[in-house]
């Protein structure tokens, strides 16, 4: 609205606020979506519809799958979509998927149930799927592997977080770095608080926009070659996690992890700025029965799926060939 129309707008009650964030699947029915486990999810499919589903799991929790999209692009003659069904899934309350006001739905249990239902939807005959998860998405993949190893033809864990809360405690006790350390004088924190005077976080649009203010500053020690994009962050999911409502007090995805006999590919960067990088992956590698750790020189936490996506695509392609999936 031009400035010259401000006065009429004020007099008339200007309530036609232009959207600051993209619409979700509820607001734009033309977006590709899947309804499972009582929610509506934004799911973009590429590649071969009849191929083995390769489900990409974004990090966070709270990020959407857009920043994993390079893993679906052809690179150096390697194209995962040439024979596979690539599934980019925005998890509950993230990206363009449905938003939920009930925070009790934004928990690890629900997200696990969502993935269970999505796999059932994509693979109703139980022929098997491949999971590729980054950071929190790697944890979710490990959780699925732990609970349903018979459904998984292959798993690619891209700088995954810890497979159990005990592992993280042991890592920190051994002198490992912590993921998030809040600096109460940080500009992003002051910016969020100050911004709340202009955009009250009474709905998901305002929340999702406002929480982006933290994106650059909340993990200042994580350095990447490029910043990866998002469609729309899941503010309520991030908020739930920040307030301690997402994870249970203790969790353990390793109870049956050793029962998965096949090779699992773990990809990590080796920069000291990545708290979930190669050192941490070596620390928790033995919880997998048959792991292969591939380290990408100079890659930061997000670089392994964005700036260095081409390397990861090649590693994944070679791995899936070894598994007989390709």
């Amino acid at each position: 609205m031009p400035t010259s129309r401000l006065l009429p707008c004020l007099l008339a009650g200007c309530l036609n606020t232009p959207p600051l964030v993209p619409p979700t699947v509820d607001e734009d029915p033309s977006l590709p979506s899947v309804q499972v486990n009582g929610s509506l999810f934004h799911v973009v499919e590429e590649g071969q519809p009849d191929g083995v589903p390769l489900i990409f799991l974004a990090g966070g929790p709270g990020n959407d799958a857009l920043y994993l999209s390079r893993l679906g692009e052809p690179c150096d003659g390697v194209d995962l979509g040439a024979s596979m069904r690539l599934v980019f899934w925005d998890q509950r309350g993230t990206g363009l998927s449905r938003r939920h006001d009930d925070e009790s739905l934004l928990t690890l249990d629900t997200f696990e149930a969502d993935l269970d239902a999505l796999v059932d939807h994509l693979d109703p005959e139980g022929l098997g799927v491949v999971l590729a998860g980054h950071s929190w998405g790697g944890m979710l993949a490990a959780s699925y592997l732990n609970r349903h190893p018979e459904r998984v033809l292959g798993a690619v864990l891209l700088e995954p977080g810890e497979y159990s809360s005990d592992i993280w405690d042991d890592w920190v006790a051994a002198g490992g770095t912590s993921t998030v350390e809040i600096d109460f004088g940080a500009e992003w924190l002051n910016d969020i608080a100050w911004s709340s005077q202009l955009l009250t976080m009474h709905d998901h649009d305002a929340l999702d926009l406002s929480i982006l203010i933290a994106a650059r500053g909340v993990q200042p020690d994580r350095k990447n070659q490029e910043e990866a994009p998002t469609n729309r962050v899941g503010g309520a999911v991030i908020r739930s996690n920040f307030l301690g409502g997402f994870y249970p007090e203790r969790f353990d995805f390793t109870t049956q992890l050793q029962d998965y006999p096949h090779e699992v590919l773990v990809v990590a960067g080796d920069t000291p700025t990545s708290d979930l990088g190669a050192d941490f992956q070596r620390f928790q590698l033995d919880y997998l029965a048959n792991p292969t750790l591939e380290v990408i020189d100079g890659a930061g936490h997000t670089d392994v799926v964005w700036a260095d996506a081409c390397t990861t695509v090649r590693l994944t392609h070679d791995y899936l060939q070894r598994q007989g999936v390709l």
Partner: peptide, 24 residues
Amino acid sequence: TTPYARRVGGVQPVSGWTGWTSWS
């Protein structure tokens, strides 16, 4: 909205007056 927000954050290109956006 800033170019950074549009490029990385998925934020819509908006520059203008909007109605009631805040209360406390």
